[in-house]
């Protein structure tokens, strides 16, 4: 651990995590403690396994048939890969926003209501839709068109809808897998602002290609790179300001100064 973290402030923690696709080790020996109500960015060159690690946090890798892990991921101290743990329950508590906006081909309203409904939400659905859309800073733009197809929204709006959709399930952690890579700079900025607001209530982990974004929007940054055997590994983890101004590792410095990747 390279940062001084309060043990009680850790919400999810990867312990000596290695991830394999078949016999290929994609990520090795990652130790990463994510702090509550902070935005943690994971950066690094392509192929370094950052998305793989992110997807391990809510067991989305389960859908890759050959994928399996070594080590543990502790969520509030509970290993989410323990046999008695239900991956569906894990994903309810740890939501995800994907690289390309992927709203359901349904109405805006239904996009938000569906997740809440299948998770047994019994309260006032209209209220929930309004609240989550407001939280995702989308309400004002869509409040008159809630019955309209979500596919009619712009890319940036779609991505905020996907965030709202994730919020409606009331997760504790939101994983974002390069959420802005398909968006224009203005839409990107809106998402970054939104992340900042959301971090009051949620813990956010964001994988990004874009170093400026990590520098602007995150509290903590983990830098990943690839080893000679093509396995991803975590090089350095710390306060974002420290990583970008005083990196401790030569490889981090090379990367952020543009000498690599």
């Amino acid at each position: 651990m390279t940062t001084q973290t309060n043990e009680n402030n850790i919400i999810i923690q990867a312990n000596d995590l290695s991830i394999y696709y078949g016999s290929f080790r994609a990520v090795k020996n990652v130790n990463l403690g994510i702090q509550r109500n902070k935005i943690t960015a994971i950066i690094g060159p392509s192929g370094c396994g950052k998305s793989t690690v992110l997807r391990a946090f809510n067991r989305m890798n389960d859908f890759v048939q050959s994928a399996h892990n070594d080590g543990k991921i502790l969520f509030h101290g509970q290993d989410i890969y323990a046999p008695e743990v239900d991956p569906v329950q894990v994903r309810q508590m740890i939501g995800m926003v994907f690289q390309k906006p992927n709203p359901f081909p349904k109405s805006i309203y239904e996009n938000i209501a569906w997740g809440a409904r299948i998770n047994g939400y019994k309260g006032n659905m209209d209220e929930l839709v309004e609240n989550t859309l407001q939280a995702a800073a989308l309400w004002d733009e869509v409040k008159d068109n809630l019955k309209k197809s979500a596919l009619a929204l712009s890319g940036g709006q779609q991505q905020r809808l996907c965030i709202a959709r994730a919020l409606a399930v009331k997760p504790e952690i939101i994983l974002m897998d390069e959420p802005c890579s398909a968006l224009d700079p203005i839409a990107t900025l809106k998402i970054e602002d939104l992340m900042r607001e959301l971090s009051v209530k949620y813990s956010i982990i964001i994988v990004t290609h874009n170093m400026q974004q990590a520098a602007r929007a995150s509290d903590l940054t983990a830098f990943f790179t690839m080893d000679e055997d093509r396995a991803g590994l975590m090089v350095e983890y710390g306060e974002t300001s420290q990583i970008f101004t005083r990196p401790k590792d030569k490889r981090t410095e090379d990367y952020i100064t543009g000498r690599f990747g």
Partner: peptide, 12 residues
């Protein structure tokens, strides 16, 4: 992506 969106929300 549609399946992932659904699973990501904790759907079975």
């Amino acid at each position: 992506s549609l399946r992932q969106a659904s699973y990501g929300l904790g759907a079975t």
